[in-house]
Amino acid sequence: MSTHDHNHDHDDHAPTREDDDLELTEGEARFLALKSLLIEGGVMTADEIRARMEFNERGSPHQAARMIARAWLDPDYKARMLADTKAAAAELGIEATEAALVTIENTPERHNMVVCTLCSCYPRSLLGEPPAFYVSKAYRSRAVREPRKVLREFGVEIPDAVDIAVHDSNADLRYVIMPMRPAGTEGLNEEELAALIARDSVVGCALPVAPA
């Protein structure tokens, strides 16, 4: 890109924005005001914001799925992921920016689920932005009191004989759930297995299902 010969950062001259056709809301206007003051004040540049957005886009449910599929196939990798999730992410070229990540494995005796009751802490590097339910006050309130009932709303029925452990995340420690590999997936390769691991299964609100 050529050098600008003026002081403004015209980042909105960038390619068409996906929501240009939406009406400007007060919330967006407040953000744009803040952004313009931060840029004018020299706190950050528009290029830095753009670069960080690109970096953030790399965080997607596919990253967690790759790790879990690898763990299902490779017991050594699984052991490393359970011991040090950030290092195991780095092995697959994933830069986890979270302060700390801990992987918890579902077992036939115990199903695990994740919530952040105080805010919305979520393993973004491995899953992207949290879905609406995760940041909702309903999920934050109810997950710790009636997890079985909450899971039923997701269509997930956990038998009474199986315990449910709910893990409350915070900014210093975030959780990743390793679901159990479904029966009937013996012949699948890593990529095929990764395709079965949906975003919500990594916070315990869904279960991977073998292809029909």
Binding site: I49, T117, P131, S136
Partner: peptide, 28 residues
Amino acid sequence: TDIGGDPAGPIPLEGRDQLFWEKQMIAA
């Protein structure tokens, strides 16, 4: 902010995509 355990309504299962400005805000 300490709402864990409080009574609340149904979990909102329908999501929506993050808006462009929301992505920018998180990045900033």
